[in-house]
Nucleic acid binder design. Structure first.
Lengths: 239, 239
DNA sequence: CCCCTTAATAGTCACTACGACTATAAAGAG
DNA sequence: CTCTTTATAGTCGTAGTGACTATTAAGGGG
């Protein structure tokens, strides 16, 4: 362990891969880049790249996101380590160990290609298939993780702008989980959880024109939900 | 991204570190090895070591566990990736990225030193301080993760032998969480969760001699708890 | 042998959380 | 003005659970 004598020290390439998720027009989207070179040239992939000698995986993840997509200094970016993929053969060129991240952001700007990516684009989650490397699996793992964390953390606000309506917050849950939620019950639950959201006094937003204006809320100081907001097996009514 | 042109490919050493947890005499213990060489020679550390070229991190974790501690082919070992630690400078010798695992096992055998470890030993969790590298942090993260997963998964049975009493299962929760639970309520909850445990027909075990013999149970097919078994802020009565 | 202790198991009660639902309020469209 | 849409308020019944009390089945000490 941690010694040179017993096992030869073998060098590995270490990369980061990012599953950047957001909500656009009520649908879950993921940020993909088109690969400019072999292997998998022309195929879509998650943004990512090699770790530099003097940076942590978290730092590298932010740098790569900025470089490849032009999403520099995004406000409200939630970055979270997913897991590390280390199966031999996952990169046909060489031995690569990749630290995968899930990133959530609100109000996504339009990305541009850059770095090694010929272009970058938001792609609906369901259309993001047949990706390069094992990125299909990483993306699925990211969605699973995010869906699970919605249950017992306040993560959902990471998909929302600084001020949002409860309807928008509910849309986050409905979109990620793929289920419909009862609006009064959702509202009761969120407001009953101390620190989840805070009312913005006197503010309201017209919801796309029609209907009663909704009150605005900000994310509160809480990070976990006690008790959790469970996604029950059979919930909601048809949308 | 994943190209050679833009960034130089920098080699890293990749290791695995294991936080192997078990219950001994009603207390949480962690498996530690004494380092045989610099850096941190003589200090206690989590078992672990370098990844070999043709193995995944999971494979390496099992191999290192066997090599360094003599715990070869342990039955009922639960191995789970925790996260990857990649801060520069976490190893004074060189740039090392480490994939950390949490491992749970029942009825631990007495380990022996081996490999690069001069000795291996079960250490009570609270006594496992001042470890080498950033292993204090990894160990704390492992305990947090296990404690959280007890709430919404059937992980607790991984600490128990194949057949166990509900009292033993409750001890797992109480020990990891550090709280006392009400026995009748715990029982009601566990038995009401389909697939958590299955009764072993006609079997009972004398519980240390005194008291009514307890019925024996096996782990059931379920993996998640719906609804979860929450550790509430103020729970239980003084032990 | 009886009674005490210990631990497992059974059952009660009240309160909370929540799913399902109805009702009201406030906006725009026609 | 009325219809539609969306937000918000409130009601009702039930499942889950915290806090208990009661009973059962073992060993130990007199």
């Amino acid at each position: 362990m941690h010694g040179y004598d017993k096992h030869a020290y073998e060098p590995f390439a270490v990369t980061v891969d990012l599953a950047v998720l957001t909500l656009r027009a009520g649908a879950l989207h993921v940020l993909l880049v088109e690969r400019g070179q072999e292997p998998y040239a022309g195929r879509w992939a998650l943004p990512g790249g090699f770790l530099l000698p003097e940076e942590s995986a978290e730092t590298a993840a932010r740098r790569e996101l900025a470089e490849e997509t032009g999403l520099a200094d995004v406000t409200g970016l939630h970055l979270e380590q997913l897991r590390t993929y280390s199966e031999p053969g996952r990169d046909p060129r060489m031995r690569v160990v990749s630290v995968a991240f899930a990133a959530l952001l609100p109000h996504p700007p339009e990305p541009r290609g850059g770095g090694d990516a010929s272009q970058a684009r938001w792609v609906p989650y369901d259309a993001a298939v047949d990706l390069a490397f094992d990125h299909d699996r990483i993306l699925a793992d990211a969605r699973d993780r995010v869906g699970a964390k919605l249950e017992y953390t306040c993560l959902a606000t990471a998909f929302c702008p600084p001020e949002f309506t409860l309807g928008e917050l509910q849309q986050v849950y409905e979109t990620v989980w793929g289920t419909a939620l009862d609006r009064p019950n959702f509202r009761r639950k969120v407001l009953a959880t101390p620190g989840f959201v805070e009312a913005v006094p006197g503010a309201a937003r017209l919801t796309g024109g029609r209907g009663k204006p909704a009150a605005l809320y900000r994310a509160g100081p809480a990070t976990t939900l006690h008790p959790p907001l469970l996604r029950t097996p059979r919930e909601g009514r048809p949308a």
